[in-house]
Design a protein around this nucleic acid. Structure first.
Length: 505
RNA sequence: GGCCUGUUCGUCUAGGGGUUAGGACAGUAGGUUUUCAACCUACCAACAGGAGUUCGAAUCUCCUACAGGCUACCA
């Protein structure tokens, strides 16, 4: 049919909201297939529904796609959009009108003067009777005179596609196999609304044909629409592309992914500190597997190994925990330099959101400090935001929580005594004592602190616990010795003093 | 209601007439450890149900149940 043609795939979102997980996967699979085959990935905006379409959503979608690295070869937002443009359906109204009129002229479509209200009423009645609703073709029976009269009256009309009778529509879906549908089960659907704009099935088909899309890869919710579109392809004499429908992505409750399910927009995941490689890796695993073992794929590996016909049919529930795990894996495998860079950007934003009076002096040394901090937290975080949460006391003043203040109340630990000893031990470091100055570094700090636990004949974890609460306002911190070193002598001692003062009150 | 589609551990999946039904996440137990992680070890846990075909079915066929989609002048 079109074996030697260049592969052309497309992602065609409608801008009714932000790019969500499900659409992102559809975009990604299209992109993967284009990369794999050396084809073109086209972006088209389906904004024919004026009521629901939001202008800023388009930008959001474009931004999210770019962030994911799913760059398109043709479409909006590019310096030269491409030779099949415009790529926004709202700018292609004339094209659809023209084809609709051609179909009317060829008697493959007809004018319908029925009002949406009447139709709605009839539909309701049929539904209550438990009978299938199908348009009764009232307007097909109109005589040319009647039509002329209505037009002269200025009556508004839609254009309906005339579905051929007794026709078997068959197509092969890469994922779902052979699909056969009888034309009897298809209503004479509207292709052009009375406002002159096309409906989805019509505009999508016209554009896919005109833009010479060879492979349509989209969500399973369009599987049932495909027969209608094939009818249009045939009526207009267009080449029929290959179809691949992707199983739906559902929320953890098994329902279609929606706002109720918490963060579902890509934007949210960017904010939370997920990495694009991790998101794409996870998305690839929803409905597809390469073999029985591999779960981690680099993007190049995915391009190499991805196959449309090994996508499975079952809808997949979105598993946030697994995404988290994958993200943690990618973070751990980042180089210190790259991770530091990412953490720095996040931290910068975080610090900007804080009151200046809440910042420690060290906030000004973010750039130098972050590279030292990074190896300490790399294995401990699953998202960048977790990282920020773990390390922000390096830069932001701590105010002791009640929990911290009362932490040792009913425990058999003499916290003040320990802290006084710690203070003294640390204070001695870096003190000028002729030649024998001991550096304030993790190694020496460890030596000193372990000495204290020996002196007191106390398990070291107890000592560490006390120090953590005092300098970090939390029983959890990055590894203690490195943390103290990076915090610096001055700040460490100050926090110990502060804590001692507060608990002695 | 009609049409289309799907159903393997809690979740993502591998397998596609003969397997101890494999892996990963989560969970549990242990090890390591200055906390939290990470890491290591072990464990837990599935072929929706029923008929049929067959020497043999999770795998093929049919039925049922459940789930999802479409049935809009939404996409």
């Amino acid at each position: 049919m079109k074996n030697n043609r260049e592969v052309r795939v497309r992602f065609a979102p409608s801008p009714t909201g932000y790019l969500h997980i499900g659409s992102a996967r559809t975009a990604f699979f299209n992109w993967l297939y284009a990369k794999k085959t050396g084809g073109k990935f086209i972006l088209r905006i389906e904004d024919t529904d004026i009521a629901r379409h939001q202008e800023d959503a388009i930008n959001q979608i474009l931004e999210s796609l770019k962030w994911l690295g799913l760059e398109w070869d043709e479409g909006p937002g590019l310096e030269t959009e491409g030779k099949f443009g415009p790529y926004r359906q709202s700018q292609r109204a004339d094209i659809y009108k023209e084809f609709a009129q051609k179909l009317v002229h060829d008697k493959k479509a007809y004018l319908c003067f029925c009002s949406p209200e009447e139709l709605e009423k009839e539909r309701k009645i049929k539904l209550e009777e438990g009978k299938p609703f199908k348009y009764d073709r009232k307007c097909l029976k109109l005589s040319p005179d009647e039509i002329r009269y209505s037009l002269r009256e200025g009556k508004s009309y839609a254009i309906r596609f005339l579905v051929p009778e007794n026709e078997k529509i068959e197509f092969k879906d890469t994922v779902y196999g052979d699909i056969k549908v009888s034309s009897e089960s298809i209503d004479d659907f509207i292709i052009l609304r009375s406002n002159g704009l096309p409906t989805y099935n019509f505009s999508a088909t016209i554009d896919d044909a005109l833009m010479e899309i060879t492979h349509i890869i989209r969500g399973e919710d369009h599987l049932s629409n495909t027969p209608k579109q094939i009818l249009i392809y045939k009526a207009l004499g267009f080449n029929i592309p290959f179809f691949t429908h992707l199983p739906m992505i559902l929320g953890q409750d098994g329902q279609k992914l929606s706002k109720r399910h918490g963060s579902i927009s890509i934007e949210k995941y960017i904010e939370e500190g997920f990495l694009r490689e991790a998101i794409l890796n996870y998305l690839a695993l929803l409905g597809w597997a390469y073999d029985e073992k591999t779960t981690i794929f680099s993007i190049d590996e995915m391009i190499e190994k991805f196959e449309l016909d090994s996508i499975n049919k079952k809808p997949a529930k979105f598993d946030y925990d697994k995404l988290l795990w994958i993200n943690g894996y990618y973070i751990r495998n980042l180089s210190d330099e790259n991770l530091a860079e990412l953490l720095k950007d996040k931290m910068k934003k975080y610090l900007e959101s804080q009151k200046p009076s809440n910042l420690e002096e060290s906030a000004r040394e973010l750039d130098q400090k972050i590279i030292k901090i990074t190896p300490l937290v790399k294995e401990r975080i699953k998202t960048l935001n977790e990282g920020i949460g773990l390390i922000n006391p390096f830069f932001v003043k701590i105010s002791y929580s009640n929990e911290s203040i009362n932490y040792f109340k009913n425990k058999n630990i003499d916290a003040p005594d320990i802290l006084k000893r710690v203070y003294k031990a640390l204070d001695e470091l870096e003190e000028q004592k002729g030649e024998r100055t001991e550096k304030f570094c993790a190694e020496n700090i460890e030596k000193r602190l372990r000495q204290i636990s020996e002196e007191l004949n106390l398990n070291f974890r107890k000592v560490a616990e006390v120090i953590r609460i005092a300098i970090w306002n939390s029983p959890v911190s990055p590894p203690l010795f490195g943390t103290i070193e990076i915090l610096g002598k001055k700040l460490t001692l100050k926090r110990i003093e502060d804590y001692l003062r507060i608990i002695s009150q």
